[in-house]
Design a protein around this nucleic acid. Sequence first.
DNA 1: GAATTCAATATTGCATACAATCATGTCGAC
DNA 2: GTCGACATGATTGTATGCAATATTGAATTC
Lengths: 255, 255
Amino acid sequence: MSTLGLDSDSLALAGLCSSVPMVMKVGTMTKKQSQSGTIESVASALEKAIHEHRLPPGSKLGEDDLAEIYGVSRTQIRAALQALSHLKLVEHKRNRGAFVAQPTLREAREVFEARALLEPRTAHSAAARCTPEDVEKLRAHIEAEHAALAAGDNGRALHLSGLFHIEIARIADQETIAAFIAQLVSRSSLIIALYWRRRMAICESHAHDALIAALAAHDGPQAEELMKSHLLDLVSSLDLRNQVSAPGSLREALT
Amino acid sequence: MSTLGLDSDSLALAGLCSSVPMVMKVGTMTKKQSQSGTIESVASALEKAIHEHRLPPGSKLGEDDLAEIYGVSRTQIRAALQALSHLKLVEHKRNRGAFVAQPTLREAREVFEARALLEPRTAHSAAARCTPEDVEKLRAHIEAEHAALAAGDNGRALHLSGLFHIEIARIADQETIAAFIAQLVSRSSLIIALYWRRRMAICESHAHDALIAALAAHDGPQAEELMKSHLLDLVSSLDLRNQVSAPGSLREALT
DNA sequence: GAATTCAATATTGCATACAATCATGTCGAC
DNA sequence: GTCGACATGATTGTATGCAATATTGAATTC
């Protein structure tokens, strides 16, 4: 039985899962679709599930379970897990399997230092290149984010909030930096799952609104400053002080 | 027959290759060492060969060839190639195989923009934390680089020059940023192979010497400035103007 | 003679089968 | 009653074999 958070119900929610080719498992003579985007599909589905905190840090990602859930072979699951492992989203323990990564306190600090280094100046660049279409796209993101929040789906809101940051890097027309930021945003999602202190409300909406305004006005310095303070706000909503162990990792620490 | 630049001779040069476990291929009943670092070993060996320009951009990396060269199974070769693919060092073409990546002009510019964003401020941080042992290590790097240059081994010198930059990020105690820089340095090696104009001499030695001095003196602003100008020098030694095709990619473009 | 089609070969993509390793639960000894 | 050793089960790591696809060469036709 699957101990994953990915039962048939959440599978339907995953969105991208629907693009996983339907393999008619009637034996070995069936012509499979060989749609060949399976690895990326599985990786995307898992990534999304992790972003939305349906798979909390530390979750075991058994190969057989995933293979059965997605209806593909273990080989492709392994490839997808390996890809996510390179993004630091899953950790591989030798002969033990793959687990959703649990960033340490140190990693958490490093991730946000890297974001502080990359994102403000990227936002600056984006302001110069931002087109009306880009602004429209960003507004759509915000809107969807608000809708998700209103619906109480915090996970989805967080996911969309991450996409917002990645979109800004894309507007700056820097694919390489955008890839880095995408990775950092993904890891941030894990960090938030581990170190977020509930007392603090995530009032990102305002920050994002102001950012859009600055971008639309092509005000580079303002966008840079807003992004910087936005990231600082985000960090201050986390509990990154030294502590004996991260919440939830206790179980892992005592084995 | 192998069309790779990795005959038995260059195999011996690869250094890390010696850590590839010796599989006694006497059939299937032989107990292999199962040293289990094979994938990393192969990936490192390939990475080094690419850094040192023994495998120029566009080289075909046939799985069977590599499997025979390193005496391991195709499975591990595939895993190693996949890892390098995530570092953007090799490109996978569907049903065609793996090739040493050929960064486009656009990618080349992006890589150096990312470096310009990351490295100067990382050098700044490194200056504050730099210990005498770190300085010694950096000097050793420089020395080896000079030795390689004197021996006419430009490839090795380039490789060491890259390690120098990564070492600085490590001194800054930022593993996450160091990983990004490592990737960018690797890709820079490919970019140099494609777009370097021979007229320009690579006078990095001086820049590196000055950088060490600034780091040793804990002069953050100076280190930041030196790194910035060093990167600019490096870019100016490249030919990143628009052109019909990169040198060497002609063959590929006409197939 | 040149071009196009078709067959043959080589190479990758994929899945399955086996081997190795780790976790768990039981039995026995102290 | 508790601790330790062992056997069993489950899960990952690895290799090999087959199927699918691209490339190469030859033969045929215009």
